[in-house]
Design a protein around this nucleic acid. Structure first.
Lengths: 399, 399
DNA sequence: AGCATATAGTTCGGCTCAAGAACAAATCCC
DNA sequence: GGGATTTGTTCTTGAGCCGAACTATATGCT
């Protein structure tokens, strides 16, 4: 039960009921399509007449389209309804320190165009490059409407001002990226932290978590980021700063972290941590060169080839991934924790350890599932598409 | 933005708009009373006519009452509306290991009756004793309607089944307390974890956090419990298990915790931890007796009397309270963290340390306020009143 | 006193919307 | 072809908000 925010609430008008019910219809079609009006009546509990009127309206607005006719043992054949997936196009941009993904997706979240380009050093060049490409793509695919642009980036974004609070890995000075991209493209821009985007991706597109209302995404790369869905919605905290569990200290006398503190989770469980573990294990060989050019990628390969040091490094990393997961389970008790990042490619090797440690160190009553994301699914960019889609498929809020 | 749960949603009917708007009216009156219909029109943005109809209805249902007439420089004098605080009575029960509070409150959360009794060893006796007393009180105050009973207890309650998942400090075997209390009193019973109740208390009755949507309550006693309000609503997690941050390990080689793990936050920052610190500081004197009967209460007194060991023990405790708060700030970035428990009585002594450590060890961008609750306010029992009040004052959810 | 002005609150017609019943359409089976 | 069955539409009714007109009550100026 939510408390009404008396500084910012929304009263109901005569159209409110329709807003709510047509949003429900849209979601029911999304889930159950192909689906007849009669099915919608049964799923929703609304009157057949009401369903008819609402679907008629949604068809007129091109959200839905009538499709083939179904077959039943008896009676009039139903006309199936479908989501009109090509009603709108959404651009998704995923900015990472070295490369940026640009995607054009439809309402179903399917990618129509998918490109990768190097991330420019400064935001000015970024805006002009991306805006140009987006305008080209809009010309090339002129038939669809464009809903907006979603941007995921390694940093925290203030939900109210939509400026980023910090993005250390990007090295960009604080800038009003949103306004400039909007001016350059004419489309609405929404920005979100990459871990939050991943959480949204799993929450809206993850097929295996039916009925889940609490889901946590953990992105593991150079650092660790956490995105949280609690009570069915993204948790952003004040100024969008929530999710920095990667900088919770697991050991007050642990190694220094770039955040200034000691023994942070990401000092123990990130890709960089695995590199450190490998260097420690490989010992003196480190000085013989080669190790300086070591990458997490190579550790995964070495482990596959049976390199004991690599296996050990990954195992230590897995152990700490488990400890951090235990923190999240104890504190937030989600139904699911999803790990995202290169580490998922080695999940078969390290998943069991992480899961075991996590359960060992968390409440015995918790039933949290811990899984690795399908890395092919591009959760960062899919999630940012989900963010934009929420405008149309999310629950409208009143009061 | 929330995702619609297609397994459990609520369609809008013709009455939905009224439900929403009259709930808003009720809250506006609660906040701004005494308030005229014209004021409500301005606060809500609804038409004067709509406000008139809704208030008429709320007066007929006895939620509101007309009061005195106001004065204005010009024009017709407004009739002020008030919340009819005595429309309903709510029983609040706070179960703690040794004593139980029973409170009868009105709609404003004011206590009409306030009693304390020893907590029976077994739930059977508890139900009969409490139910008898509640029936007596209902006879004694026959004029008001009774809304229900709220029960706060040291343990986690599954929101769906309303059974407690575990309550180790209570030592009661799992029992369907809710159903039995309902049968014995004829009133609706709602149960909630004590830390969650505290969070609700601060959120609904805390005057100093206007506009706050993310608030965390930390109860410090023998153990540490955490209750979280995020996005304006209580976060319970799967089976109500969220909030066990007290059992997050801050040190993997720290002292054993009763939960089976090592170095949990509550091993370092609870009342029991302060007792251990004191024993360590007092050293050999411990064997001379007296220390076995040491209580946290006495440590507070000794500190006031200038006992260096007591001061040091509290200071170590404060340090770890700060570290735990830093974890909550990094992870959840609330606007406010409220500490609750005996420790608040020593807040003048230890607050500064805790706040300093918390800010030192959390994101430099975070602006979380850290405060001690007013211990006289009885947050546990006030919060459980808030839980029941939410039924009438919380935002109704559709879709 | 009389009138203009201002503010509070009520009443009524018009519009949106869901409910529910009646009806039309389409199909199968006998 | 007729009855049974299911889908989908149409129409009336009642709930509820909007907006305008209207009533009630006050002040201040002439």
């Amino acid at each position: 039960m939510r408390k009404i925010d008396l500084n910012n609430f929304q009263v109901a008008t005569s159209e409110t009921a329709r807003d709510i019910n047509s949003r429900i219809m849209l979601n029911l079609v999304r889930k159950h399509q192909p689906v007849s009006r009669a099915d919608l009546m049964r799923y929703s509990g609304l009157q057949r007449s009401t369903v008819s009127v609402i679907t008629e309206q949604l068809i007129a607005e091109r959200w839905l389209k009538e499709g083939e006719v179904g077959n039943l043992p008896r009676g009039r054949k139903p006309t199936f309804l479908h989501l009109n997936e090509d009603r709108a196009g959404i651009f998704g941009i995923n900015i990472q320190p070295c490369s940026t993904n640009l995607v054009l997706a439809n309402l179903a979240g399917h990618f129509l165009v998918e490109e990768t380009l190097p991330t420019p050093d400064d935001p000015d060049r970024f805006v002009t490059t991306i805006a140009k490409r987006i305008r080209e793509l809009m010309k090339k695919h002129p038939r669809i409407a464009y809903e907006g642009i979603g941007v995921s980036l390694p940093g925290r974004v203030d939900p109210s001002s939509q400026r980023f609070v910090f993005a250390p890995n990007l090295g960009w000075r604080e800038t009003n990226l949103k306004a400039r991209l909007q001016d350059a493209t004419g489309l609405t821009v929404e920005m979100e932290n990459a871990a939050n985007a991943c959480a949204l991706s799993e929450f809206w597109f993850g097929s295996h978590h039916e009925g889940v209302k609490n889901l946590i995404a953990v992105t593991v790369s150079e650092g660790i980021g956490v995105g949280m869905i609690l009570n069915g919605q993204l948790v952003s905290g004040t100024s969008g700063l929530a999710g920095e569990f990667g900088h919770v200290s697991l050991n007050e006398v642990g190694p220094k972290c770039r955040c200034g503190n000691q023994g942070c989770w990401e000092v123990y469980a990130s890709n960089s941590a695995a590199l450190r573990y490998y260097a420690e294990a490989a010992g003196d060989k480190a000085n013989n060169g080669g190790l300086a050019e070591m990458t997490f990628q190579k550790i995964l390969e070495h482990a596959d080839q049976g390199d004991a040091h690599a296996v050990q490094a990954l195992s230590r990393m897995a152990n700490y991934l488990g400890r951090g997961a235990a923190m999240l389970i104890n504190g937030l008790a989600p139904e699911v924790i999803v790990f995202i990042g290169d580490v998922t490619r080695a999940w078969q090797r390290i998943g069991a350890t992480a899961v075991e440690i996590a359960h060992q160190r968390s409440s015995t009553h918790a039933t949290t599932k811990i899984v690795a994301s399908d890395s092919a699914a591009q959760p960062r960019v899919r999630g940012i598409i989900a963010l934009v889609l929420q405008r149309h498929f999310g629950a409208p809020t009143f009061a």
